[in-house]
C-alpha cells in the first residue's frame, strides 16, 4: 500500500458513488420525506404529518392490494421452493440428453416476463388452449374463467410466475445437489434405503439450506409482483388481481399522488423487511440444525 495517494480509492469509487447516490440513496431519503407530504405532480404539496398513514388505514383498495400480493406470495413460495427441487433431482440423473432437457427447462427464464404473460394470456382465455387440454384429459367439465373469475385470477397470475421461475430455481438446486457427497447415497443404499427414503433422509436434510435460500428469494420477489398482473389483467376484474406495486404505480403515475404513493411504498418496504427478518430467523433456526 505504498505510494498510493489518499484520493486513489475515491477515484475508483467515484462512478459508483455518483450512480448510487443519485439513483438509490437520494431516492431513499426522498421517499421517506415524501411519505409525510401530500405532494401531487401538478399542484405540489406540503408536510401533512401522519395523514397518509391514516388514509392508508382506511383505504380499502390498499388493503385489497396488500391481500392480493400476500395471497400471491403464499401460493408462489411453496410452489417455487418444492417443484424446482423435484425437477432438479429429475434433471440430475446421469442419463443421455440431460443437457438438452436442462436447456429447455431453463428457456422460459430467458423469455422476459412480459413475453411469458402475453403467451399465457392467450392460453388462459376461456376459449384458450389450457381449457381445451384440461377438458380433454378430463380434469374439468366446462371452461374455467381463468382471468375473469375474481376468485381464480390471482392463481392464474401465480401460474405464470411459477412457469417462468421453475428453470431458474432448478439450476440453483442442481448446484446445491452437486455438493451432496455421493457416498452418503451409497451408504443409504447399502442400508437398504429406497429412492423415497433416500430423498427424505439424505437429500432433504442436506439441501435444506438451499431450500431456505430459494424460499427467501421467491418470497422477496413475489411480494413485489407487478408485471405479470399488469400484462395479464391490468389488475382486474374489479381489482381482484391488483397487487400492491400495481396500486402504488397507479396512485403515483396515473393518479399523480406522489406523496400518498410514497407512503404506501414505505409500507411495502416494511413488509419486505418483515419477510427478510422472518426468513433470517427461520433460516438460522431450521436450516442448519
Amino acid at each position: 500500500m505504498i505510494g498510493r495517494r489518499w484520493y486513489t480509492p475515491w477515484l475508483f469509487l467515484a462512478p459508483s458513488l455518483l450512480l448510487l447516490g443519485v439513483f438509490l440513496w437520494w431516492p431513499v431519503l426522498n421517499t421517506t420525506a415524501l411519505a409525510f407530504t401530500d405532494t401531487h405532480t401538478l399542484r405540489g404539496g406540503g408536510f401533512t404529518g401522519l395523514d397518509n398513514l391514516r388514509r392508508i388505514m382506511s383505504d380499502s383498495f390498499f388493503w385489497n392490494a396488500l391481500r392480493n400480493s400476500l395471497f400471491f406470495t403464499i401460493i408462489v413460495v411453496p410452489a417455487l421452493t418444492v417443484l424446482p427441487l423435484l425437477l432438479a433431482i429429475l434433471a440430475s440423473a446421469k442419463l443421455k440428453g440431460m443437457t438438452f432437457f436442462r436447456v429447455v427447462f431453463f428457456s422460459p427464464v430467458v423469455a422476459s416476463m412480459v413475453v411469458a404473460a402475453l403467451i399465457w394470456g392467450w392460453m388462459l382465455r376461456s376459449d384458450g388452449l389450457l381449457n381445451f387440454v384440461l377438458e380433454r384429459i378430463g380434469i374439468i367439465n366446462e371452461p374455467v374463467r381463468w382471468l375473469s373469475d375474481p376468485s381464480l385470477v390471482m392463481i392464474s397470475v401465480a401460474v405464470v410466475t411459477i412457469w417462468k421461475g421453475l428453470g431458474y430455481y432448478m439450476v440453483i438446486y442442481i448446484a446445491g445437489l452437486q455438493n451432496i457427497p455421493k457416498d452418503l447415497y451409497e451408504a443409504a443404499e447399502l442400508d437398504g434405503a429406497g429412492p423415497i427414503r433416500r430423498f427424505w433422509s439424505v437429500t432433504v436434510p442436506l439441501i435444506r439450506p438451499t431450500m431456505f435460500l430459494v424460499g427467501t428469494l421467491t418470497a422477496l420477489n413475489a411480494i413485489k409482483v407487478f408485471t405479470e398482473a399488469f400484462v395479464l389483467t391490468g389488475g382486474g376484474p374489479n381489482r381482484a388481481s391488483e397487487t400492491l406495486v400495481l396500486y402504488i404505480y397507479q396512485r403515483g403515475f396515473s393518479g399523480l399522488e406522489l406523496g400518498y404513493a410514497s407512503a404506501m411504498s414505505l409500507v411495502l418496504f416494511v413488509v419486505v423487511l418483515g419477510l427478510t427478518l422472518i426468513a433470517q430467523i427461520w433460516t438460522r433456526r431450521r436450516a442448519n440444525p
Binding site: 448510487l20 438509490l24 426522498n30 411504498s265 419486505v272
Partner: peptide, 24 residues
C-alpha cells in the same frame, strides 16, 4: 462506514423508491 451503508441499502427494492427515482 461506506460498506455499512451499502449493506443497509442492499435490501431496498426498486419498487419502494420508484416514485423518487422518477422524480430525480
Amino acid at each position: 462506514g461506506l460498506f455499512a451503508m451499502m449493506i443497509a441499502t442492499l435490501v431496498i427494492p426498486f419498487e419502494v423508491i420508484m416514485i423518487s427515482v422518477f422524480l430525480v
